[in-house]
Design a binder for these strands. Structure first.
Lengths: 137, 137
DNA sequence: AATAACTTTGCAACCCGGTTGCATGAACTT
DNA sequence: AAGTTCATGCAACCGGGTTGCAAAGTTATT
């Protein structure tokens, strides 16, 4: 619903332009994390750079998070409601080596790592690769 | 020592060409995981494609492992002696956001993840980002 | 309502890591 | 020595990501 989309944007202090509404729409319908090229394909005609910058603003305002998907490219997915993208907020991601989809394992938080005390922690990227349930059959 | 280098190669069934000896030499001296472009710079004149293929054979023969370093590119480091690159053999990597070096945290194994039973596990890429001890001072 | 100031969009171009095709060259086989 | 196989070097390409810049759209100011 249009209202909800605008709401989400407003909540994160993102001006609701047409483009942004559309992109958020797609991200909302999307069950798996999506890459920029994939997002591009969801539109008839859309400019890569604009989408790129849209994702960037979304990420800066913590509406979405990104992960390196384990195959060299970035994927994006909506954050949980009160996610601040701090290490505690992060979950594990799963890349299916067959269908190439990336799943957010939202209920598997990234395990805590005991870094040497001389290292400081900012974020964690954890991607598990394997075969997903759809492809295993 | 030349002998040791050749030994390592032979042990993994890799024909010890001049190029391979040189690359293994560099990897041995290297304390942190190195990227292909970085490796290129270690030589006066060397072909990217050759280095690329050298790394690839090294990896196929489990002499080195690779990780997505958290900034979109791949880095390579020598495997531990009896590493088979199975999930149990893997360790956590650390990317310093300041000096951009990637450290193998050899004594921190990748934590076990309880995947939904419908998912099968092949490998794990875990990169922690933060500031390393050298840069923290 | 008109102008100025700022933001977003679209296009083109670029960068860079990774990768492949192909021809030459080295090493091993008979 | 001829033939096969494998390694190397060069060039070219691909694709994801990123930037500069000018046009279009918004918002603020008078």
């Amino acid at each position: 619903m249009k209202k909800e989309i605008d709401n989400k944007l407003n909540l994160k202090n993102i001006k609701p332009t047409a483009m942004r509404q559309l992109v958020l729409q797609v991200l909302t319908e999307q069950k798996t994390a999506i890459s920029l090229p994939e997002l591009e394909q969801k539109f008839e005609k859309a400019d890569k750079a604009t989408l790129y910058r849209t994702l960037k603003t979304f990420q800066e305002n913590k509406l979405i998070h990104s992960i390196e998907d384990g195959s060299g490219s970035l994927r994006y997915a909506l954050c949980q409601d009160n996610c601040e993208c701090d290490p505690e907020d992060l979950h594990v991601h799963f890349l299916c080596t067959n269908c190439n989809q990336t799943f957010c394992l939202k209920d598997i938080p990234v395990p805590t790592i005991n870094l040497p005390s001389s290292f400081s922690l900012e974020s964690v990227n954890m991607v598990v690769k394997g075969v997903c349930s759809n492809c295993k059959k």
